[in-house]
């Protein structure tokens, strides 16, 4: 019995194993197409009006017809989210390095980093809005939510340095800066990059949430405002279109951060290695 199973698997690995890579792309696409098809069919068959629930085709039409407005809003949101992310990355790394340099600094400030993390952004945003105005609020929110994952992961990375390598550097009289740049930062890189991947998605969420809460309106506003505005006007397809664009933005940010991570780690880190069959 067991011999039979063995010989059959040796001769021909199961279909799923052989095509795992292709299936990984094909299956989600098929699932999505089927869902959209069912949705489209339901709207058509039931005669549901677009202001109640738009069909996928209505959303595409709304995206195209509102493109100039939506796209300029998209750029506003994306710009602020990325600016917040960039600040979070720089801030997180710098603070993580300071924390590992000095126990004093760490003891003084680490509780506040945690407080910043655990306080819901939605609760702080209206306050920030009063003191800084809506644009700065959106930027600060994107920064605040992205900051902690970068800080926390980079800290873990900086502290996971191989003890043997620390001894080796000490043996050759390495300066603290040499230890930082030649040993600690490279060791922390995989952790840092995983923090950036989390922060990327969060910064977009932070920017959108802050924009919704701060009630920004008028020219030069982001996608969150377009959602609110379209809601007031009963333009439901455009609400969906804005959500679609935000979703695509999130995917784009994730894809870019994952790509950067892969490019930097593929030669040496386990997480980026392809499994050998």
């Amino acid at each position: 019995m067991s011999a039979d199973i063995k010989s059959s698997t040796q001769a021909r690995p199961p279909f799923f194993e052989r095509h795992a890579a292709k299936l990984g792309v094909a299956l989600p696409v098929v699932t999505l197409a089927a869902t959209l098809g069912l949705w489209e069919f339901y709207i058509y068959a039931s005669g549901t009006p677009a202001y109640k629930l738009p069909a996928p085709s209505d959303i595409v039409k709304a995206t195209i017809s509102g493109w100039s407005i939506l796209f300029s809003s998209l750029l506003v949101t994306l710009r602020i989210a990325l600016l917040g992310l960039l600040s979070a990355v720089i801030g997180g790394v710098v603070i993580a390095i300071l924390f590992t340099r000095s126990r004093w600094i760490e003891m003084c400030f680490s509780p506040y980093a945690v407080i910043l993390q655990v306080t819901p952004l939605i609760a702080i945003a209206p306050l920030l809005n009063i003191y800084f105005g809506f644009e700065a609020t959106i930027y600060l929110s994107a920064f605040i939510v992205g900051f902690f994952p970068v800080l926390s992961n980079t800290l873990t990375g900086l502290r996971s340095t191989d003890r043997g390598l620390v001894n080796l550097f000490a043996l050759y009289g390495a300066s603290p800066l040499e230890i930082l740049f030649r040993l600690q930062l490279p060791s922390a890189l995989p952790y840092f990059l995983s923090g950036v991947r989390i922060a990327g998605g969060l910064s977009l969420i932070g920017a959108i949430a802050a924009e919704l809460v701060s009630g920004a309106a008028g020219e030069g506003t982001g996608l969150a405002f377009r959602i609110t505005e379209s809601g007031y006007r009963g333009n439901i397809p455009r609400m969906f279109a804005a959500v679609l664009l935000i979703c695509l933005c999130g995917i784009l940010i994730y894809a870019v951060t994952s790509l950067v991570s892969w490019l930097l780690l593929r030669r040496w880190h386990e997480s980026a290695l392809r499994q050998d069959a």
Binding site: N167, L168, L171, L183
Partner: peptide, 19 residues
């Protein structure tokens, strides 16, 4: 004084995986 005249081989290879 420093490691100039001493070589040390550890129990583990202790290599930098990124290099």
């Amino acid at each position: 004084e420093r490691g100039r005249d001493i070589g040390f081989v550890f129990q583990e290879p202790t290599l930098m995986p990124w290099a």
